[in-house]
Design a protein around this nucleic acid. Structure first.
Lengths: 261, 261
DNA sequence: AAGTGGTCTAGACCACGAA
DNA sequence: TCGTGGTCTAGACCACTTC
């Protein structure tokens, strides 16, 4: 406690004790008295400092963890969270000129930013579409779609999980159904087959992650996820792919260009 | 408990008891056995059903609340959260054709969706820009900017808080500095002054809200916020406005159009 | 072994809401 | 008044990390 001067409880305030304690620690983080990676005083020390029961201290720490300000590490202590490398996604990231390089966009961008990219958990299946996917692709529920799932990592840290759905009729006989879809990715394969891409529509939501997302993205408590649903339209207006993506909001800033006219 | 059949604890599992209980209730919500607005069994009933201490039940309920699945109402009970009216923001929402109507975009859109729009907490101040705003507007830190802050509500429910920053030199002698900026809003005023808008750049982040945002937007626990920073560029490339917006992720889906070429 | 957080108990008193 | 959730206590035992 000698390192971190914390105030004492205000006996007059009707603010709950655990909230006051959370306020003190939050303030220390916001002012920089505790900075990223620093250890928060242990529960035992905080109990002694404030003269309250352990559950009260734990409640306060839980508030901060829910706000995404701290992480607890079993047996080591509670630490101020460090922010990972942030990846900026530009709205022209699917422009054709970025696709002719022969390398996937994710690889190029990550290496350009000085990180080491990895892609794993690649699974390719054929199944009937969900009602939502079917509606977006203007398909019947009994038609087949190819689902390509993969997980993206930067410096070994998972940041994004994505599943693409492509009508089976468009995928047959192409590398779309193989783990390595070839230079330029599946968009290049679809364009080779005569489906020239015209535009994409992207829906952006944010929410707290589900349990399996917490596991797959190794999310810290209190970190929301972006949920993107992108539909690719070919010239003529036909939807030829839907991509459903969940990404850590810690690792991404999305940027878009909006027209004025 | 007769209404909601919950399983009992698995004595073999090494999954923590409070997690198992949270799993059961979450499953009931996901399968629709409990739907939006329904009351979760009271703590007392859950204690009896599972034969555990009250703190264990509370811990389980806290997990669900942190996931944004439930809300507790003091003296009434714990309820499955209801989703509010969702507003979809299109990427052409600042196109000039939407501005010539004489009404603010927010009003038109909300009325079109059958809601009642309100704008309050309007504050207009002059001050030096923050380093971030100054950089985006290519201003010196000693120059003045006009800050317009307002809060938007739908059916009395706050959904969005926004602050616009405009270089003082562009705002003098216009209604930009008055609470009612006139038909078409501040963009129309800036264009009248000869600053024809060319494009907007929007940065999208998501995170857990700060305390003051929880208050101002009346956010339920476990609901993240979108944080948008939009910069407006005039023909010639000059940045003429920065708008900083915090919105409930519950109330919004953002949609963007991406070019393929 | 010592220190840390993770889980759980069995109570207490309080504040709020509905009847 | 009664049932509800909100706060808090004072312990217990366990699992993990560091030394």
């Amino acid at each position: 406690m000698s390192e971190l001067p914390l105030p004492h409880l205000d006996p007059i305030s009707d603010r709950a004790v655990f909230r006051q304690i959370a306020d003190h620690i939050r303030h220390a983080i916001e002012t920089g008295a505790l900075s990223a990676g620093d250890k928060v005083p242990s529960e035992a020390k905080l109990m002694q400092h404030y003269g309250v029961a352990r559950m009260t201290i734990r409640h306060a720490l839980q508030i901060l963890q829910g706000e995404g300000l701290t992480v607890a590490e079993h047996g080591r202590g509670v630490f101020v969270r460090t922010r990972p490398l942030v990846r900026r996604l530009a709205s022209d990231r699917f422009a054709r000129r970025h696709r002719d390089l022969g390398k996937a966009a994710f690889i190029v961008e990550t290496e350009g930013a000085g990180g080491t990219p990895t892609v794993d958990s690649i699974a390719i299946t054929e199944a009937n579409p969900s009602p939502d996917v079917a509606a977006r692709l203007a398909l019947d529920l009994r038609e087949l779609v190819v689902a390509r799932t993969r997980r993206y990592l930067i410096n070994g840290q998972p940041v994004e999980m994505a599943t693409s759905y492509i009508p089976h009729a468009l995928a047959v006989g192409t590398r779309v159904m193989q783990p390595d879809s070839g230079p330029g990715g599946i968009y290049a394969r679809l364009e080779e087959k005569g489906h020239r891409l015209e535009r994409f529509e992207e829906e952006v939501r944010a929410r707290m992650p589900y349990r399996d997302e917490v596991r797959a993205l190794e999310l810290a408590p209190g970190v929301p996820v972006f949920h993107l649903i992108r539909t690719a339209y070919a010239v003529g207006g036909r939807a030829i792919e839907v991509c459903d993506t969940v990404m850590s909001t810690d690792a991404y800033v999305l940027t878009y260009e909006l027209p004025a006219s």
